[in-house]
């Protein structure tokens, strides 16, 4: 059983090895590039920020605090609280405008009881002469 498992592992190792060999011309330069970049960045940190932990602690705290603030403002499952207030105000304003459109100002004009002609503040209808008291 153990020898069978060993055979199986050997087959897997050969497959993985052949894939890696096939990809080597592509992967190796990319890996070398990443190593160069990381080494340069690490060297920068070592030269300039390698004496005190204060910088790293401050960055960590800033990340956490800003994360909290960003989540309060933009939680993701609804519009951000700052914008939602603005949107709410705009919607409220739109509703008012729409509401005022809906109200027909013609209805508010005083009309004659008999003929329906607008009479305004006049006590007698100018069209049919009916009194509006």
């Amino acid at each position: 059983m153990i020898f069978q498992v060993m055979d199986f592992l050997e087959i897997i190792a050969e497959i993985v090895g052949s894939i890696l060999l096939f990809l080597k011309p592509i992967v190796s330069p990319i890996g070398a590039f990443l190593v160069d970049v990381t080494t340069a960045a690490a060297q920068f940190f070592k030269d300039n920020l390698g004496t005190s932990l204060t910088f790293y602690i401050v960055i960590c705290v800033i990340l956490v605090v800003s994360g909290i603030i960003v989540n309060i403002i933009w939680p993701g499952d609804r519009p951000g609280s700052i914008f939602s207030k603005g949107v709410g105000k705009i919607e409220e304003f739109d509703d008012k405008i729409e509401g005022s459109d809906d109200e027909d100002f013609v209805d508010e004009v005083k009309r004659c009881k008999d003929c329906g002609n607008p009479v305004g503040d006049s006590e007698i209808c100018p069209l049919c002469g009916a009194r509006q008291i």
Partner: peptide
């Protein structure tokens, strides 16, 4: 140092 940075970024 880098552990702190990784943890802070993990929160975000």
């Amino acid at each position: 140092a880098f552990g702190l940075l990784v943890s802070g970024l993990a929160f975000f």
